[in-house]
């Protein structure tokens, strides 16, 4: 974890999950699992966030909401799709109102498996995301001033 120079903040959105993964995301933030010890804080404001945790599959109604939150998160950003519903729709994939995995709407960097995903796997997913975040940051840095001006978050 030497690359963890900063405190990445996460934002969580429940696309159309059954709640199982959502409460496990919250469980990961609370004492027993406690990702806050890595400086990871759950925020409600997309503009504060670096990592976007999405649970559940997307549908016609929340498609725009998911896209909107994604667009508001400043670069560099990482998307973690949590649970099987966020990957493919899971048990609900044949439902009329389910469009499919989150990757149909926004690019996903990490998929966390499980129904419901266990807090341990969620933490693992977030830690993987941190590595990707760092790669993205370096890539942005190399690209130079152009992108840096826009993002402001690159070192």
């Amino acid at each position: 974890m030497t690359y963890l120079k900063k405190s990445p903040w996460v934002i969580h959105y429940d696309a159309s999950s059954c709640n199982g993964c959502d409460i496990e995301v919250l469980a990961a933030l609370t004492p027993v699992y406690d990702v806050e010890r890595f400086g990871i804080i759950n925020t409600g404001n997309p503009k504060h966030a670096d990592i976007f945790l999405v649970t559940g599959s997307v549908n016609e109604q929340n498609k725009e909401v998911v896209k909107n939150i994604y667009e508001q998160i400043p670069e560099p950003k990482v998307v973690v799709a949590i649970g099987i519903c966020a990957a493919s729709g899971g048990i609900f994939r044949e439902c009329y109102n389910v469009l499919g995995g989150v990757d149909k709407v926004i690019p996903v960097d990490v998929f966390v498996t499980g129904c419901a995903a266990r807090p341990e796997s969620i933490i693992d997913g977030v830690v993987t995301a941190l590595g990707i975040l760092e790669t993205k940051r370096l890539a942005m840095k190399e690209k130079g001033n152009e992108t840096m001006d826009k993002s402001g978050s690159a070192v």
Binding site: E60, R93, E94, Y96, N97, L99, G100
Partner: peptide, 19 residues
Amino acid sequence: IRTSIKFPFGAAIPKGEQP
């Protein structure tokens, strides 16, 4: 309840198999 197809439980609307 906003649904992507109108009246899903109503008249039989042919629905595409979701992947």
